[in-house]
C-alpha cells in the first residue's frame, strides 16, 4: 500500500529528527529502530543537519 509506505517513511524521518533535537545519540536511535548506527546516520544525518544550520557544534562528539 503506497499510502502507508509513504506515511511510514515520513514518520520515521520526523521521529529521528525529534530524537536528535531532544539530544538522543545516533546509537540509541539506531537501537530503537533495530538498524545499525551507520545505517540510521547515513539515511538521516544529512537531511537533519540541513534543517538545523549552525547547531552542529553542540553535538560534535556524536556526529559520526
Amino acid at each position: 500500500m503506497v499510502a502507508l509506505r509513504r506515511t511510514l517513511e515520513a514518520l520515521e524521518a520526523a521521529q529521528v529528527e525529534n530524537a536528535i533535537v531532544a539530544g538522543w545519540p545516533w546509537a540509541k536511535i539506531a537501537e530503537v529502530l533495530g538498524v545499525s548506527k551507520q545505517a540510521v546516520h547515513k539515511k538521516h544525518a544529512k537531511r537533519i543537519r540541513a534543517r538545523y544550520p549552525g547547531e552542529r557544534s553542540r553535538r560534535k562528539g556524536e556526529d559520526r
Binding site: 500500500m1 499510502a3 502507508l4 509513504r6 506515511t7 515520513a10 514518520l11 524521518a13 520526523a14 521521529q15 529528527e17 525529534n18 533535537v21 534543517r51
Partner: peptide, 23 residues
Amino acid sequence: EALASIGISLEEVRREAGKPFDM
C-alpha cells in the same frame, strides 16, 4: 481515506510527530 481504511488517522500521526513530519 486510504489510511483511514486501515485504521490510521493521518491527522493524528501528523499531530503526534509534530513539525518535523514532512511528506
